[in-house]
Each structure stands twice: as structure tokens, then as C-alpha cells.
């Protein structure tokens, strides 16, 4: 009876750990930057497209990029699906294509260079990481409330008030 109880508890614990691991995979968020910029690889230049429109799940409108533009979108999970409408040159005929990518788990802000990606270059040519500028280095005072560790209670639903403001 005791062994059965321990077994059930271990099974529940394993299930919880499994769910947590699954959440870590499907919930990993990335800010994806799409670049329509010329790129040079192995001495060859791949020119930016005249215009690219990228339809991404979660965005109301397709993201429009002219040559040398960068746009950003968010992606939750490791798979990114892009429906692209590419116009190679001015007055050119737009062509539609779909791209499915696996995003690296440990990269917060992957930058995808579309000319390199669509020309079939290896990953190192079209994938880079966006490193944000460090936030302000001004020292931040940590407010710990009054000497008893709490506020006076006059702030009410203070967290809500911050958002309402």
C-alpha cells in the first residue's frame, strides 16, 4: 500500500515536471527581426529586394519592408512560419512563397536576413542575434515601503493604478 502511494506521488511529480518542460518549449518567446538588407557572403553580394511583405501569425496586417528596412514580430515557440510576397525590383511581378524555420531556443532576438535566406544560403549567413543596448545605468532606488516593511495601505490597488495611469 505504501509502495503504491509512493509510486503515485512519483508519477504525479514526473507529470508536473513533464508539463513544466513542455511549457518551456512551447512558450519560449522570441522577438524576431526581419531584415531586407543586402548581404555579402563568400565574396558574392545578395541584393535587398525592392519590397517584401511578410504575413506572420498574430500580426493583424502583413509586415511591409522596402529595401534596407527592418521590422520585428514576436514568435512564441520554436517554429516560425512566414508567408512572403517578394517583389524583386521596381515594377516587378510579386511572387509568393512560404518559409518554415526552426528558431534557436537560446536566442531572444534572432535577426533573419531575407535576401540570404531566400537565396538558400547556409544558416550562418541569414541568422544573427540582436543584442539590445544595455538599459540606463542610473542607480535605481529600491523602495521597500516604510520601516515596518509595508506601505501605509493608502495606495489601494496600487498595481492597478500604475497600469490605469
Amino acid at each position: 500500500m505504501k509502495a503504491r502511494k509512493i509510486l503515485i506521488r512519483l508519477a504525479v511529480l514526473a507529470a508536473l515536471i513533464g508539463v513544466a518542460a513542455w511549457m518551456m518549449v512551447i512558450g519560449r518567446g522570441h522577438t524576431v527581426y526581419l531584415d531586407n538588407k543586402s548581404v555579402e557572403y563568400n565574396g558574392q553580394e545578395y541584393k535587398a529586394f525592392y519590397r517584401v511583405e511578410a504575413a506572420v501569425k498574430g500580426e493583424e496586417k502583413p509586415l511591409r519592408m522596402d529595401a534596407r528596412d527592418r521590422v520585428s514580430t514576436i514568435c512564441i515557440g520554436q517554429s516560425l512560419h512566414l508567408d512572403l510576397t517578394v517583389t524583386d525590383e521596381k515594377d516587378g511581378q510579386p511572387r509568393s512563397l512560404s518559409v518554415d524555420l526552426k528558431l534557436p531556443y537560446n536566442m531572444d532576438g534572432p535577426i533573419l536576413n531575407l535576401p540570404a535566406l531566400l537565396n538558400g544560403l547556409p544558416q550562418e549567413a541569414w541568422l544573427d542575434e540582436f543584442i539590445p543596448a544595455p538599459p540606463s545605468e542610473e542607480p535605481e532606488d529600491v523602495e521597500l515601503g516604510d520601516e515596518f516593511g509595508g506601505g501605509l495601505g493608502l495606495e489601494g490597488d496600487d498595481v492597478g493604478a500604475i497600469m490605469d495611469a
Partner: peptide
């Protein structure tokens, strides 16, 4: 900090 967003983030926070 682990950048787990949306509902999976909420579920993971609850489990943690």
C-alpha cells in the same frame, strides 16, 4: 527571465 511568454508562461509560473 527565461522568456516564457503567454499562457505557457502562466502555467509554468504556477507549477514553479
Amino acid at each position: 527571465d527565461w522568456q516564457i511568454w503567454g499562457i505557457p508562461g502562466v502555467v509554468l509560473a504556477m507549477l514553479l
